[in-house]
Design a protein around this nucleic acid. Structure first.
Length: 224
DNA sequence: GCATTAACCACAG
DNA sequence: CTGTGGTTAATGC
C-alpha cells in the first residue's frame, strides 16, 4: 500500500510528510467510496479515525433540540472530524455524503504521531482548524442576524463562489435540507426561491439554479 | 392598530 | 418531495 505516496489529492499538511511518513500513512489508512446519502460517520458513535475527504461533497450535521441542523457543507479535499475525534470520545456530529465521495480513514494514533514528530505538519493542521473556526464565527453571526431571504441569498452565493465556482449549478440538497442549512422551514425555502425567481434574481427549475443578477443577490444577502 | 415576517397545517401535484 | 394558500403568533412603526 503506497497510495498516499502517489496521491494527487494530498492535504497541505501532508505535503510536509516525508517518504517514510507517507508510507506509514499509507499502511494505516483505509480508503472508502461513499454514494450520495451514505452516512460517513454518525453522531454519538465512537470515533477512532481522522477522516480525510479526497473528493466529493459532504454535509456536517447535528441533531438539535428542535430539529436537524446542517453545520456546514464541506468540499474535498479536506479533513473532517478532527475536532470531534480529538476533542471527545464520541462524534458530536454526523457526516453524510451529498455526492459520490472518496474518503480516507486515518488511524488516530498515526495522526498523533505525525503531530508529535513533524512540526510543519502540525502547524498546517492548526492553521486549517483556525480558518475553519473563523468560517464558523462568520456563519454564526450571519445566521443569527439576517432574515430568511438574506440567509438563503448568502447560501446561494456560497454554493456559487466556494463550492461550484460557477453561477450555474445543481443544488445538491433537497428543499428540506436547504432549510436545515439556513435555519428555515422547507416551505419558506420554496417560497423565497420562487420569489427570487419571480424577481429575476435567479432562474430556478427543480434543483438547477442559475444566478442572473448577482449584484442584487449580494445586496439581499448583505441587507436581508 | 396595521404591516411584516415566518412558522405550522393542509392539500395538490 | 415540492409548491401554494390560509392561518397564526411575534414584532415593529
Amino acid at each position: 500500500m503506497e497510495i498516499c505516496k502517489f496521491c494527487n489529492k494530498r492535504s497541505s499538511a501532508a505535503r510536509h510528510l516525508g517518504n517514510d511518513e507517507l508510507e506509514k500513512l499509507g499502511h494505516s489508512c483505509v480508503e472508502v467510496s461513499f454514494e450520495k446519502g451514505d452516512i460517513i460517520f454518525k453522531q454519538n458513535a465512537l470515533s477512532s479515525n481522522i477522516i480525510y475527504v479526497r473528493e466529493g461533497l459532504v454535509k456536517i450535521h447535528m441533531a438539535g433540540p428542535e430539529r436537524e441542523q446542517i453545520l456546514k457543507i464541506a468540499k474535498g479535499p479536506t479533513y473532517l472530524g478532527i475536532p470531534t475525534t480529538l476533542g471527545d470520545k464520541v462524534n458530536n456530529y454526523s457526516a453524510t455524503a451529498l455526492t459520490t465521495t472518496e474518503v480516507c480513514f486515518i488511524d488516530i494514533q498515526v495522526f498523533k504521531d505525525f503531530i508529535d514528530s513533524n512540526s510543519d505538519f502540525a502547524y498546517e493542521i492548526i492553521v486549517n482548524l483556525c480558518k475553519n473556526e473563523l468560517g464558523h464565527f462568520h456563519r454564526c453571526v450571519n445566521q443569527l442576524q439576517k432574515q430568511s431571504p438574506g440567509r438563503v441569498a448568502e447560501t446561494l452565493l456560497f454554493f456559487a463562489d466556494e463550492i461550484f465556482e460557477s453561477d450555474i449549478f445543481d443544488l445538491p440538497l433537497s428543499r428540506h435540507e436547504f432549510g436545515d442549512l439556513t435555519g428555515n422551514s422547507r416551505e419558506n425555502v420554496s417560497r423565497i426561491l420562487s420569489d427570487l425567481d419571480k424577481e429575476g434574481v435567479i432562474k430556478i427549475s427543480g434543483k438547477s439554479i442559475q444566478i442572473l443578477d448577482k449584484d442584487k443577490l449580494f445586496f439581499i444577502s448583505k441587507n436581508g
